[in-house]
C-alpha cells in the first residue's frame, strides 16, 4: 500500500548540503501499525513529511496506493493529503475557540462534503476515539490535553484516509494519558483496520506498534516486526 524506493532528501543552505535521508527503502502493508523511531536529527521528521505528502524527496520514489506521490505538484500533494492522509501532531493543533465538532469536520470543508454528511462522519470518528458526546459541543480550549489529542485523532480519521501519520502524539501528554492515546491508536488499528505510522523518539512509545523501523543519520538501521505471540502479549 505504501512503498518507498531509495528515498534521498538533501537540504541545501548556501554551500552546505545536508543529507537528511539517505537511500531509504521500505514498504508498509494496509492495516499495519508501524513506529518509525529515531533520535532527533535522525531524519525521521523528513521521512514523515515525505510520507505525509508535505514534501517531495530529492531522489527516489514514494508510492501511496499505487500512485507515485514523489513527483506531484503542490496542488496535487494537497489533494493527496486531503483524501488519503490524516495527521496527528504533538501539539494537537486544534482551532482555538472552536467547538470539538467543528474541529473534527475541518478537513471536510476542503472536500466540500455536504453539511448533512459531515455530522454523521464526525460522530463516527468521535465514537471511534471514545470521546464522551457531552464534550462534542465544548470549545477546544475547554477540554483536557488527552481529550484534545483524541479530537485531533478523530479529525485525522474523519474522512477515512488510507494512512494516519502521528508525529510524537504523546509528546505533550503525561504517561497515563499518553498510554491512553496509544491504546486508542492500537484499537483503531485492530478494530477498524486503519494503517497507522507513529513517529517517535521514545522506545516505550514505539513498543506499542507491531513493527518498528529505527532510523539514524538518514538510514534505516533496524526494521523488526514483533512475532504474533509477543503482539498478543502486549495487548
Amino acid at each position: 500500500m505504501l512503498k518507498c524506493q531509495n528515498l534521498t532528501k538533501i537540504y541545501k543552505s548556501g554551500e552546505n548540503e545536508t543529507k537528511a535521508l539517505d537511500d531509504v527503502s521500505f514498504e508498509i502493508e494496509k492495516g499495519e501499525f508501524v513506529a518509525i523511531m529515531g533520535p532527533s536529527g535522525s531524519g525521521k521528521s523528513t521521512l514523515m513529511h515525505i510520507l505525509g505528502a508535505l514534501d517531495n524527496p530529492t531522489q527516489g520514489k514514494y508510492f501511496l496506493d499505487g500512485n507515485n506521490v514523489s513527483e506531484l505538484s503542490e496542488n496535487q500533494l494537497a489533494e493527496i493529503r486531503k483524501k488519503q492522509i490524516g495527521f496527528v501532531f504533538q501539539a494537537f493543533n486544534l482551532l482555538p475557540r472552536t467547538t470539538v465538532l467543528r474541529n473534527v469536520t475541518l478537513p471536510l470543508i476542503y472536500e466540500e462534503t455536504p453539511r448533512e454528511e459531515r455530522r454523521k462522519m464526525a460522530e463516527i470518528a468521535l465514537n471511534a476515539v471514545k470521546l464522551d458526546p457531552e464534550r462534542w459541543n465544548h470549545l477546544s480550549n475547554q477540554i483536557s490535553g488527552g481529550q484534545m489529542q483524541r479530537v485531533a485523532i478523530a479529525r485525522a480519521l474523519v474522512n477515512n484516509p488510507s494512512l494516519i501519520l502521528a508525529d510524537e502524539p504523546t509528546g505533550n501528554l503525561d504517561i497515563k494519558t499518553g498510554d491512553f492515546i496509544l491504546e486508542t491508536f492500537k484499537r483503531l488499528n485492530k478494530e477498524y483496520g486503519h494503517t497507522i505510522v507513529l513517529i517517535t523518539h521514545e522506545e516505550e512509545v514505539a513498543d506499542w506498534a507491531d513493527r518498528k523501523i529505527v532510523i539514524r543519520d538518514g538510514k534505516i538501521i533496524e526494521d523488526v516486526t514483533k512475532n504474533m505471540k509477543f503482539k498478543t502479549g502486549s495487548k
Binding site: 505525509g52 489533494e79 493529503r81 486531503k82 493543533n93 472536500e111
Partner: peptide, 16 residues
C-alpha cells in the same frame, strides 16, 4: 501560522 500549517496539512490548497 500554525493554523495555516494545519489547514494545509489536512488538504487546504493555496487557493483555499
Amino acid at each position: 501560522t500554525r493554523e495555516i500549517g494545519l489547514r494545509k496539512s489536512i488538504g487546504a490548497k493555496k487557493k483555499d
